[in-house]
Amino acid sequence: MVDTARFLADLHDLRKIGTYKTGVHRPTYTKEDMESRRWLMDRMTECGLEPEMDGIGNVIGRHKGAGPHLLVGSHIETQNHAGWLDGALGVVSGLALARAGLPVDVIAFADEEGHYGGFIGSRSFIGQLEDAEIDRLANRYHGKPLREALKEAGLEGRPRMRCAEGRYRGFLEMHIEQGTQLESAGLRVGVVTGIVAIRQWKLVFTGMQDHAGGTTMAERRDAGLSAIRLLAEIDRQFPLVCGPRSTWTTGRISLDPGAASIIPGRCEVLFQLRDVDTAIIARMEERLHALVQESNRREKCPCVLEPVSLSTPALCDQALQQALADAAEALAPGAWQRMPSGAGHDAQYIARVMPAAMLFTPSINGISHHWAEDTKEEDLALCVRVLAEGAARYLAA
C-alpha cells in the first residue's frame, strides 16, 4: 500500500526549496537546485535506497534487493518562476513506490527543462551526451558555460553514470498533464500512449536595412513584413494537413537591427511543430517547405529554412501501458483515458534503451511552466496509487 500522506508531505517539503509565490524557482545547478538534490538523496536513504549523484547532476537511488527492477523518476529542477509539480511529481512518486516495497530505482535527471541543453541528464544516462557537447553548452538565459556551472555546483570531476545493462524491465514517469484534456472531460487519470516529436526550425529572412522615413513603401525590402506574411499563411494552411492534437508555435521573432526608425534588413523566426504521428509530421513539414518556396517566389525578402532540432515520436510500451490502464480501471473505473503527451519528457529518451510509459494527473486550468500550476491533492494521491498498482502488475506478469 502506498503511503499517500507521506507522498504528499514529501511534495510539499520539496516545494519549500526555491519557493516563488505558490510555485518554485529552482533553475538547474543553482544553489536551490543542488539543495533539492541533496534533499532527495536523504529521502532515498530513508527509503532504503543507495543514493548517488553523478558528474552531470543526475541523482539515482538504487534498490538493494534482487530484481527484476523498474526505473522510476523525472526531474526536480524547474523553469524560471514555475510550478511545484512539473518534474518533481515523477521523482517523489518514485520515492512513494520505493517506500511501498516495490523493487524500483528512483532517478532525477538533470536539466530536463533545458537551461543548458536539451535533456542532457537523460541523454547522458543512455550514453548520448558527448564531452564535446558539454564543452560547448551554455546557459540560454545568461550565457554561463556548462563546465563552469558544473564546477560551481561541486560536480566537476565526478564520473557520469550510465544505464546498467539488463537491470531494468522498464521505466515509469508520472507527470502533470500540462493541458486541459483530462480536466475538461472530468477525468482523473491519463495513460500516455506516446510522446510527441518536436520539430524546431529557424526561418531566416534577408531584406535591406534602410531609413524608415526616406525609403518609399514601393522601394522597401522589409524582412519583418515578409516573415509576418509567411507566418500568417502557415497558420491558415496547417489546419488543412494537421491532426487533431497537432500544435505549431512561433516562439521568437528577432528583427535586426530592431530600431523604430530602421527598416529591418534581417528577421529570424524560431518555429516549431509537434505531433505524435510521423505521417502527420511529414505532411506538415511538406506544407512548410512548400509555403517557404511560395514566399520566396512572391516576396522581395528570401527565406532560408534551417533545421534546429528534429526529434522523433516516442511511443509508450504496450505492456506497460496496459498494466497502467488495468490499474486505472481498478482504482478509478470510468475516470481515465488513454492520451498522447503534447510535451517532451525524459521518458522519450529512456524509451530508446528500455520499455517506457507515463501516467498523467490533471492540471487545474491546464496551467504549467507558471507559478500558478496546481493539481488537486486527491488526484495526486489517486494517481500515485495507480502508478504503484500498475508497476506491481507489470512486474508480476
Rank of each mutant, 00 (worst) to 15 (best):
G213I: 11
G214D: 11
G214P: 05
G214N: 14
T215I: 13
T215C: 15
T216I: 08
T216M: 10
E219S: 15
R220P: 02
R221S: 03
D222R: 04
A223M: 03
S226R: 00
A227S: 12
A227W: 01
L231E: 03
L231T: 05
L231P: 00
L231S: 04
E233W: 07
I234F: 11
D235Q: 10
D235L: 02
D235P: 01
R236P: 01
Q237A: 14
P239V: 09
L240F: 00
V241I: 12
C242K: 14
C242P: 00
G243C: 10
G243P: 07
P244S: 13
R245S: 10
S246D: 08
T247F: 04
W248L: 05
W248I: 05
T249Y: 12
G251Y: 05
G251I: 01
G251R: 06
R252F: 01
S254M: 07
L255W: 09
L255Y: 08
D256C: 08
P257G: 07
G258Q: 12
A259R: 15
A259I: 12
I262D: 02
I263H: 01
P264C: 12
P264A: 13
L270M: 14
F271Y: 15
Q272S: 15
R274E: 03
R274H: 05
V276N: 08
T278G: 08
A279G: 12
A279H: 06
I280W: 02
I280K: 07
I281A: 01
I281T: 03
I281P: 02
M284W: 02
M284E: 05
E285T: 02
E285G: 01
E286G: 09
E286Y: 02
E286N: 11
L288E: 03
H289I: 06
A290C: 05
A290G: 14
A290T: 07
L291P: 03
L291F: 05
Q293A: 15
E294D: 15
E294A: 15
S295V: 03
N296G: 11
N296I: 07
R297Q: 15
R297H: 13
R297G: 07
R298D: 08
R298I: 10
K300M: 07
K300L: 12
K300P: 06
K300V: 10
C301L: 05
C301H: 04
C301M: 04
C303M: 10
V304E: 13
V308M: 09
S309D: 09
S309L: 14
L310I: 14
T312G: 00
T312S: 11
A314G: 10
L315V: 13
L315N: 03
C316T: 05
C316N: 01
D317G: 01
D317P: 00
D317T: 00
Q318S: 14
Q321V: 04
Q321S: 09
A323N: 10
A323W: 04
L324M: 15
L324S: 07
A325W: 12
D326A: 12
D326N: 13
A327M: 13
A327Q: 13
A328P: 08
E329S: 07
L331I: 08
P333R: 11
P333K: 11
A335T: 06
A335V: 00
W336T: 14
W336H: 15
Q337E: 14
Q337Y: 02
R338S: 14
M339H: 09
S341W: 05
S341P: 02
S341R: 08
G342I: 04
A343Q: 13
G344E: 06
G344K: 02
H345M: 10
D346P: 09
A347H: 04
A347Y: 02
A347R: 00
A347Q: 05
A351K: 04
A351N: 14
